[in-house]
Design a protein around this nucleic acid. Sequence first.
RNA 1: UGCCCGAUGGUGUAAUUGGCAACACGUCUGACUCUGAAUCAGAAGAGUCCAGGUUCGAACCCUGGUCGGGCAACCA
Length: 564
Amino acid sequence: MDDNKEKQSVNFIETIINEELSEGKNDGRIHTRFPPEPNGYLHIGHAKSILLNYGISQEYKGKFNLRFDDTNPTKEEQEYVDSILEDVKWLGADWEDRLFFASDYFDQLYEWAEKIIMNGKAYVDDQPAEKISEQRGTPSKPGTESPFRNRIPEENLDLFRRMKAGEFPNGAKVLRAKVDMTSPNMHMRDPVMYRILHAHHHRTGDKWCLYPMYDWAHGESDYLEGITHSICTLEFEVHRPLYDWFVDQIQEAEYRPRQIEFARLNLSYTVMSKRKLLELVKEGYVNGWDDPRMPTISGLRRRGYTPESLKIFAEKVGVAKRNNVIDVALLEHSVREDLNKKASRVMAVLDPLKVIITNYPENETEILRAENNPEDPDAGYRDLPFSNEVYIERSDFMTDPPKKYFRLAPGREVRLKNAYIIKCEDYKTDEVTGEIVEVYCTYDPESKSGGAGSQRKVKGTLHWVSAQHAIDAEVRQFDRLFKNEDPENVEAGQDYKANLNPDSLTIMKACKVEPGLRDVNPGDKFQFQRMGYFCVDTDSTPEMPVFNRTVPLRDPWSKMSSKK
RNA sequence: UGCCCGAUGGUGUAAUUGGCAACACGUCUGACUCUGAAUCAGAAGAGUCCAGGUUCGAACCCUGGUCGGGCAACCA
C-alpha cells in the first residue's frame, strides 16, 4: 500500500530543503516553528501554516516549536495565548517540551543590542515618530539620514541604558539599526529595533519599558531556538534582507536560520484577517470567536470539523507562492471524506410531518435493527423502535410532485429506511392555511427490512422517526457568512460587511430525533441520514440536545429541482 | 516614476529539472444503491499571460512587455 503511494510531488519548500540536505547544510537538521502573536484567535489560514510547519518537521524527522511572538504588550492578552495553545494542540501539532515566548529572550536580545550599538551598527534616535517616518522617504524616494545617526557608540549605549531604566517617556527615543537610508527596500532604511512602551506585559509584567520590534526579535528568536526554516507568509518577503542582516550581526557559528515565504490561504465566501474577524465578534455579527460560521479553528471545531479533515484539506490545498482563493467546496469535501468513514448514521427529522400507518396495530412497538455505518463493518447495529405513527421530513411529501420526484406522494410507495414499504392513501390539510398536517399510509407487512419479502424495490427511501419514541432536539444550520464569493467585492463606500449573509444561521427547534440520541455529549458527531453531518453543540443539555450541521450531504436532487 | 514576488482548465496544485500538460475539487453522463450519500465507470474543460529569441525540442532557459500581489506602524 505504502510503496504505490504515487511519488508524492514535493512543494517548493520541500524542494529547497531537499537541496540543502544534499549539501549537508545545518548538519541535516530540520527544525520549524509556528510563531503566533497572541492578539487574536487562530483561523484556518493559521491551520495551514501549523500543519505545514509541523508536517515538515515530521517528514524530515526534525523538530517543531511553538513560540508566541509577544513583543507588543499593548495588543496581546493571555486569553489569546490560551486559545492558541488549545487550537494547536487540537490540530495535533506536538511541540513536545518546546513551548517558547519571544519575551523569554528579552534579556538576550537586549544584550545583543548593546553589542550591536558598540559595533556602531545601531543608534538612539531622539526624533518623534512622525519625523522618522518623514525621513524614511517613500518607495520611490530615498530616505534621509537622522541627525542622530552618527552619535558615538558610547553615547548611544548610555542613552539606551537609560531608556531601559525608564528615564524617558513613551515615544521619546528609539533604538534604530544603522543600515542604509537610501536602500530601495524601505525596511532597510534604519528600522526601529526598540521602542519605549511603559506597558504591562502578560508575561514579563513590569520588568521592561523597552520592547523589541518584530524584525529584530523574530530572526533572533529563530536563531536562539536553532530553527532551520523560518516559514512565513508572502508579505514578509521584503523583510528577508533585514532578517538576514540582523542574523549577520549576531551569528557565531556555521548555523543560520533561513526565512522562506509562501502564499497565505484565502477561502471563497470568507474573510480571513484578524482585524475583520475581531470586528465580526466585537460588533455582534457572530456569536463569539467560536461561532460555527467563523473560519477560526475554534469555530470549525465547534461546527464539527475534525483535525483530520483539516489535514486532508491542507494537503489538497498545497503550498506555493502565488496568490490563491480556495473554493470552500474543497473544505466541505474534506470533512465529508473524513466523517463518511467515522460518523454513525442515525435518523433525525428536522421538519417533521406526521405519517399515520392505518393498517399497523395502534399500541404496538416493534424493535428494528439498523446498521450504524455501512462504511465501517465494525460499527455494529442498533435498535430502532417503530410504531404506527412516524415523522418524516416535510420535504419528503408532495401532493403534486414533479417528474423525477422519488419520494412520497398520493398513491405512491416509498421505503422507510430499516423498516417497511408504505403507500400513501390520503392526507389531511389545515383548512385555513392549506398546510399538510397528516399523511395516511398503509404498510406492506411483507416488506420488512431484512425479512423474506424485503427484496421488493421502490424508488425512494426515507428517513423517519417513531412519533411516540422520538425525542426533541434543536438543530442549527449554517450557511456561508457572506453572500459574495469575494466579500470585499462591494460598491464604493461600503465595506465587506455589506456582503454579510442575513440567512447564515437557521435554528430549528422542533426537530425529532431517534431515541438513541438522548445521551450525547458535546462534540459527538453523526450523520443524519440523507441530511448531512451533525455535531453536538456545547449548548446542548440532557433536556434539549443541540446539533450543529457541519455540512450537508451532497444533494443532486436539490440542485436539480432548484435549477428549474 | 522605485524595489520585491507571482502568472498552467472554473478553482487549487503538479510536470522525472529542456522531451509533445498530470492530480484533486467542482461540473456533466451512466452503473449501483434500503442514504438522490458513499462507491464505481466515463466525459467535457488549459496547449501553460503576450511577443520575440536559444534549441532537434520550451510550461520550464534568455530578452522585452502585460497583468496581479506586496512594501512607506515606535504592528506582527
